[in-house]
Computed example of a mutant assay.
Amino acid sequence: MVIWGNGTGVSPEPYDGQLRHLASWGFVVAAANTTQAGSGREMLAGARFLIAEDARPGSVFHGKIDETRVGAAGHSQGGGGAIAAGADPLVDTTVPLMPGPQGSVPALHGPSLFLAGQLDLIVPSVYVRGRYSWAGHVPAVFAELKGADHFFPGETRIRAAGVLTAWFRYWLSGDANAREIFFGADCLLCQDKSWSSVARNEKARQVSG
């Protein structure tokens, strides 16, 4: 399961393509139906709704939710919301995209991928990297997307969706091919010229490729 937080003033609709892409890879996605997702509360409410539906006979989600494998992701304020939600024991891994100031990075208890845009003037890359630097207690990766501003123009949106999906495929689905993108000496993301900067903390470097 993946729970999603929207940017400030934005509903889930602008993220529809990205969320459907996640669903096409086997994830049940719950997007917070709010334009203020920074607290993470609505995101966690989505997860708990799906868990309840999993147990309810007659639900389309009956028997289809694995509550032991939950990821949180979000963009901008929703990225801060993902960090806030990531402190909850329900959440196993977190992907903040260009996150706002919400949530406490030291409170995260699972691996995290911090995505920044090289040309982002709203949430500058240096700020996202600063938030990543507080995640030394969990495996964490920082990736700056070349040519991306705060709204993922052109192909940068596709590349962000691909990396987001790969992260969850490894940590939630155990996909060994996805692991190679982030970990090991031959880390594919580290070699991909579409990303202008990639950093992995000590715990991430210890994850085998």
Rank of each mutant, 00 (worst) to 15 (best):
L188M: 12
A37W: 04
G26M: 11
S196I: 00
M1D: 05
D66K: 10
S133E: 14
A45R: 15
H137Y: 07
H150M: 02
A72T: 05
R69I: 01
R169Q: 15
V10P: 00
S39Y: 13
S11A: 12
A55V: 01
D54W: 00
V70M: 03
W4V: 06
Q206R: 15
T68I: 00
V105N: 07
R131K: 12
G26V: 04
A87F: 04
R179C: 03
E42T: 15
P139Y: 06
G110N: 09
G110Q: 03
T93N: 10
P106Q: 07
H62W: 11
G40H: 08
R157N: 13
A166C: 03
Q77E: 15
A73K: 00
G78Y: 04
L22W: 09
R205N: 15
F114M: 10
R159C: 00
D16K: 15
V207E: 10
P89K: 05
S104V: 06
C187Q: 11
P139H: 02
A176C: 00
H150G: 02
A23L: 13
F27Y: 13
G5L: 03
F152W: 12
P111G: 08
L90E: 14
C190K: 12
P14E: 09
S104L: 12
R200I: 03
S196Y: 01
D88A: 08
E42W: 11
Q102Y: 14
S59T: 01
I122F: 03
A85Y: 10
S39G: 15
G81N: 06
P99W: 08
D120S: 03
A37I: 05
F182R: 10
D92S: 13
S76V: 08
W171L: 08
H75M: 06
D92G: 13
I158H: 09
F151Q: 13
Q18S: 14
V70Y: 10
Q36I: 07
S173T: 12
A45K: 14
V2F: 10
P89T: 11
G154M: 07
R48L: 09
P57C: 00
G110S: 07
R157T: 05
S59H: 01
A32M: 03
K193W: 02
T94D: 11
S112A: 15
V91M: 08
G58L: 09
Y170R: 04
R131I: 00
S24L: 04
P12K: 06
I65L: 09
T34C: 06
T8Y: 11
R69S: 01
K203T: 04
L164R: 14
R159T: 04
G162A: 10
H21I: 02
A185K: 15
D186G: 14
A73E: 12
G63P: 11
S104P: 01
W134G: 08
G184T: 03
T35M: 08
A116H: 03
E67G: 14
E42D: 15
M98I: 14
L97V: 14
C190N: 06
W4D: 09
I65F: 07
G38S: 07
L44A: 02
G162I: 08
A204P: 02
R20E: 11
R179V: 04
F168H: 10
A161C: 02
M43I: 10
G162V: 03
P153A: 07
Y15G: 01
S173F: 13
A85M: 07
Y127N: 02
N33W: 06
P57D: 06
G9T: 03
N201T: 10
V28K: 14
T93R: 09
W25C: 07
G86A: 10
R48T: 12
L19A: 12
S11M: 12
F142E: 09
I65R: 11
